[in-house]
Amino acid sequence: MSSLNSLSKYLGAPIAKQQLININLKRFLSSVSEECKRQSDLFAAEKQRQRENVGRIEKIDVHTEGPPEASLIMNKNVSTPYDCAKHLGDKFVDRAAVALLNNETLWHMHKPLPDSCKLEFLHYQIPNPAVVNKTFWRTCSFLLGAVVSNAFKDDVNLQLHSFPSPNVKSGSFVYDVQLGLENWKPTTSELKVLSIEMIKFCQQAHPIECLDVDKDFAFEIFKCNPHKTEQIPDIAAHNDNKVTLFKAGHHVDISRGPMVTNTDHLGRITVCNVLKLDTDISGGPIYRFQGVALPKSIVLNHFAYGIIEDRGKVLNSGRIPGKHGDVNEDNTFVSQMAV
């Protein structure tokens, strides 16, 4: 090591290295905004607090179904389905997208288990994968929001609005975003850049974390986003005054959940189109970002994928935000988000 150091003295490497570090640091800092960092830190602190609140650890029995059947003794409010999968083997950890509790409740893989239960791990190729597809599509929407919120320059005013209930049959996943750009029509290369950003983000393999928080904390996290602040009371009213938050990388967002385990579950990803929506929301025009993606475990030839991509360019039929002034029970944000 010492010989290397003495050599580098002559080569003048330290200066170059310093420059490289500077450049890297700059890139890193520019890719995550202050606001994003604040939200992520708050989320981490709250998660830590909830973990410490568990107190004395109790044991629960977890029976996993399907091959291999196993009976595990886990920790109440600490162990997650992901931890259970780790006892079964790598294959099950990588493959499982979402867990099914007692044959009825879908459960996020990184959410602590509250009680003894039967557990089943669902993946993308089970005989009837409709719920898994929906979970996957919801995750794609969430991650699209994460990418879009960091993709634009600082002088563009950007506020994430929401995404409608995931519907695979509509042909694309969607995120509605308020952008400070008038009549922006993305070029092909801009869409390509967005796709690449999303692929790069997903390849970093962030685990998707989940947290139930109360209303006040949610207000604190989203205090800079007027749209989310507006949605929070409505969401909390339908969910025992709790708001479910999800986090991937530094991005935090509201969603009913569940989501898939990790961002690296996404294989092929394309951001297909960005369309301006006709709404009455104040503060600027709302754009609908649309994309398509496939799980990593599904390999599709480029021709068939091209057909899917082409269909993703058409305006998604999902509910357009803010269009209906009257909010009734069937039309609330939460009921639209229902599984």
């Binding site: 190729q125 994968p129 695979v168 496939l294 899917i308 269909r311």
Partner: peptide, 21 residues
């Protein structure tokens, strides 16, 4: 894995809908 006859798998759902459209 049988990825062609199970029409519920995500790529098959997307392709079927594209065909319909």
């Amino acid at each position: 894995p049988d990825t062609s006859t199970n029409r519920g798998i995500i790529h098959n759902v997307l392709l079927d809908e594209a065909k319909k459209a």
